[in-house]
């Protein structure tokens, strides 16, 4: 086997969290002001392994195992940023944000504005969201919550390539960035991804705020992000066999929201479906739909539809979870319904 082929195989066998840890390590190497705080990120290397090996390499001062004190260590991140450091604060599951939201939305997100641009807030809040059968308090996505509160960039990647590049971009950003991983993706290896499992070796960035067209199509535009991109691609493959051509867009970030790329596509296909694993009401699906309508005009689309968790806590029973969280089948059904008789 050639060296290149071996390297690619290694990459494909690599769990996604190892790729994230690699991205953080490369940034910590090039910038000694970066440090990580969080529960179980040091000795244990993170509950998913996304900070594995960092404490051994960079020491306990830069990779800090904190007590279960999110309000304390999230505020500590704010102070570190004000003191000229670039903290990465891990909130193990995004559902835990309730105990420290104060420091996130009143401090980190507002201080750049409240200081008239005089105080920078280079802080990454890294957290895991998404459904893997963990019920109501360990399954939420909540990117719509962060996006509703002004002052934070909100990123939710879907593949290994973008996790590495967006993590580097987040750590280099002078603004607060909420980086939401999906638990189902964190449990995968490179080869399990349909899209962009290839990961370059060195450090690189993926710009925050640019959506990616991940599958070309002509009948309908489907916009989504995070793990749902995988479901959307599976649905699109199925429907291709039925003669329906679906364009799939990975938004990659909720703030900034790249409505231009979605509008360009939806203007061509005439139909837009927004799929969101977050809650339906007052969220991403309505916001993106309206921004696209603003760009195209009321007559610019034949159809707009959305699919999201219908304003209910995530249930424990898998049969119930499947009934409320958009998966490949639910997405395919919705697309068939939209294009019936078209």
């Amino acid at each position: 086997m050639s060296a290149v082929a071996e390297r690619v195989n290694d990459r494909l066998a690599m769990p996604l969290p190892a790729t994230i840890a690699e991205a953080i390590a490369l940034e910590m190497e090039r910038d000694e002001t970066i440090l990580c705080l969080g529960e179980d990120i040091g000795r244990a290397g993170g509950v998913f392994g996304a900070t594995k090996g960092l404490q051994e390499r960079f020491g306990k001062g830069r990779v800090v195992d904190t007590p279960i004190a999110e309000m304390g260590f999230t505020g500590m991140g704010v102070g570190l940023a004000q003191a000229g450091m670039r903290p990465l604060v891990e909130i193990m599951f995004v559902d835990f944000i309730g105990v420290c939201l104060e420091q996130v939305y009143n401090a980190a997100a507002k201080i750049p504005y409240m200081s008239g641009g005089r105080q920078r807030m280079p802080m990454v809040i890294k957290t895991a969201g998404g459904c893997i059968g963990s019920a109501a308090q360990h399954s939420q996505c909540l990117w719509g919550l962060f996006a509703h509160l002004p002052g934070m960039k909100v990123v939710a990647p879907c593949n290994p390539h973008d996790h590495k590049g967006l993590m580097a971009a987040a750590l280099r950003s002078d603004d607060p960035v909420v980086f939401i991983e999906h638990k189902a993706l964190l449990l995968r290896k490179g080869r399990d991804f349909r899209h962009h499992p290839d990961v370059p070796d060195g450090a690189y960035t993926v710009p925050i705020g640019e959506a990616a067209v991940v599958r070309r199509g002509s009948d309908v535009t489907l916009a989504t992000l995070s793990a749902t991109v995988e479901h959307a691609l599976a649905a699109a493959e199925d429907l291709a066999g039925e003669g329906l051509s679906v364009e799939v867009i990975d938004l990659r970030s909720v703030v900034p929201l790249d409505a231009d790329t979605v509008a360009e596509s939806a203007g061509r296909t005439g139909r837009l479906l927004v799929v969101d694993e977050d809650y339906l009401s007052f969220g991403l699906s309505a916001e993106l739909s309206l921004r696209v309508i603003d760009l195209l005009g009321l007559s610019g689309l034949r159809q707009v539809a959305r699919l999201a968790v219908p304003d209910v806590p995530i249930p424990a029973a898998l049969s119930l979870e499947k009934a409320v969280v958009p998966g490949a089948e639910m997405i395919a059904d919705k697309l068939r319904q939209m294009t019936k008789g078209a």
Binding site: G75, Q82, Q103, M114
Partner: peptide
Amino acid sequence: FDPATNFSATGIVGASIPVALGYAHAF
């Protein structure tokens, strides 16, 4: 907020202490 003198404040009661902790760790 005055980065030049390392001075900042918050209008939320009690929220100042965790932020001060961050400065202490940086020092």
